[in-house]
Amino acid sequence: MASNFSQPAVQLCYENVNGSCIKVAYSPGSRVILYTVFGFGSLLALFGNLLVMTSVLHFKQLHSPTNFLLASLACADFLVGMTVMPFSMVRSVESCWYFGAQFCTFHSCCDIAFCLSSLFHLCFISIDRYIAVTDPLVYPTKFTVPVSGVCISISWVLPVLYSGVVFYTGVNDDGMEDLVSALSCVGGCQVAVNQDWVLIDFLLFFIPTLVMVILYSKIFLVAKQQAIKIETTGSKTESSSESYKARVAKRERKAAKTLGVTVIAFMISWLPYIIDSLIDAYMGFITPAYIYEICCWITYYNSAMNPLIYAFFYPWFRKAIKLILSGKILKNSSSTISLSLE
């Protein structure tokens, strides 16, 4: 007897192509929600970080080694929003890759390069803040604009070289040829990474993160000691040099706290992805695809979070945003407007 129930047709990424990947179809309502959430994150990363870069580069008062590092960090996050998130959004919602195998490799390369660049920037910023808080008067002679330029160069060159070598030489999937062949299908963009390179990725995340944790722990310890010292000597008459040193130390501590929040947000955003990568590499890629996508998007959203952190903690950034959005930066001499950093 023939069955009265027919099996639902399997949807493919490319219906008329042999070897096409299977498409996981979402309901129309779910697709709208996912595109809204992912699209909002992409737009926030683009326009938020564009505001950060414009603020630092336009207003002369913000031309400092630390702020140049912040602008370069914003550039890395901006590129994540421009070259990574929109295409990952289509991949995540449609469960298919429609942009070709070559662009898949380029997309994966950009993904790793820009995210690692963000990590390196944050590590150098933590070093900058440590020097500024522990020795605020000598800091301007130690961490100069040329030194900041060297840090920025390292933060870009090393991640780009690393990701290029890993993905364009194919060393990432050495020894995994059978698995790669089994996973390969038309309309897929699944990049397999073997245990050796996953371990290297983990170390590239762990070592700078450990440096940041150690430095910020010392920063807050020193900041606490400085606050106690200022409180105990507050009733005494201070010389002008001591008063100036106290004001500088207070400003640097405030900046360190803000950037410490940025580092914590980065670590929280990256931990799920790093843990998932280790589990997949050492336990036979057992993580469901949707878990992997969630972990990826948590890391992507970190690129959109930094401008929100700056807007919440930095009065100068909020004032700069008002000037930019109102069009006042188009006027002559707008670059010399005071943003009241103190």
Rank of each mutant, 00 (worst) to 15 (best):
L179E: 10
L179W: 04
V180T: 08
A182F: 10
S184V: 02
S184C: 05
S184I: 02
C185E: 08
G188Q: 09
G188D: 12
Q190F: 08
V191H: 02
V193I: 15
W197Q: 05
I200T: 07
D201P: 01
D201A: 02
F202C: 09
F202Q: 04
F202G: 08
L203W: 08
L203S: 07
F205M: 04
P208C: 02
L210M: 05
M212S: 00
V213E: 01
I214W: 06
I214F: 04
Y216F: 14
S217W: 09
L221K: 06
A223C: 12
Q226M: 09
Q226G: 01
Q226L: 11
A227F: 04
A227V: 08
K229A: 13
T232D: 11
S235H: 14
K236F: 15
K236M: 14
K236D: 12
K236T: 14
T237Y: 13
E238T: 15
S239P: 07
S241E: 15
S241Q: 13
S243V: 02
R247A: 09
R247P: 04
A249M: 06
A249W: 00
K250H: 05
K254C: 10
K254A: 13
K254N: 12
A255R: 03
A255G: 08
K257I: 12
K257P: 05
T258I: 07
T258C: 14
T262N: 06
I268Q: 02
S269V: 01
S269M: 01
W270V: 05
W270Q: 13
W270M: 14
P272C: 06
I274P: 00
I275Q: 01
I275D: 07
D276G: 08
D276N: 13
S277M: 13
L278G: 02
I279K: 06
A281P: 03
A281E: 05
G284R: 06
F285K: 03
P288R: 09
I291R: 04
E293V: 15
C295A: 15
C295Y: 01
C296L: 14
C296Q: 14
Y300D: 06
Y300C: 10
Y300M: 11
N302K: 01
N302T: 02
S303L: 09
